[in-house]
């Protein structure tokens, strides 16, 4: 399963140097008045979009940086940030 990922510090590297960190679900939820449903959504809930998804990655075997990229899950390629109008289900709530 080939995949090249653009690390913001190290440049384009082999995908196996990275750890997948899940869909980008926005900021860590506020602890105050946090409902079980909201916490579930943040911890477990995934949109599982067939298409372009904004997601977290960590350059585990490199610089260790956490960052987000856009990837098309249908073809397993990193892609440019889609224009707002074209974007569908980025995993954000």
């Amino acid at each position: 399963m080939s995949l090249l990922i653009q690390c913001p510090l190290c440049g384009k590297r082999n995908g196996y140097e990275f750890r997948y960190g899940g869909e980008d679900k926005g900021a860590y939820p506020e602890a105050r008045e946090l409902s079980a449903a909201r916490w579930y959504d943040y911890v477990h809930g995934s949109a599982c979009t067939e298409g372009v998804v904004r997601e977290w990655w960590c350059h585990r075997l490199g610089c260790g940086t956490w960052f987000t990229i856009y990837r098309d899950t249908r073809v397993n390629r990193q892609v440019q940030e889609p224009r707002e109008s074209a974007r569908q289900g980025t995993g954000r709530t």
Binding site: M1, Y40, D41, H44, G45, S46, A47, C48, T49, E50, T73, G89
Partner: peptide, 20 residues
């Protein structure tokens, strides 16, 4: 294909990772 479909149809997010 269920989790993506359920989200598209209802907005409900499931605790699922779809792996090949």
């Amino acid at each position: 294909y269920t989790a993506g479909l359920v989200h598209r149809l209802t907005g409900l997010k499931l605790p699922v990772s779809v792996l090949t």
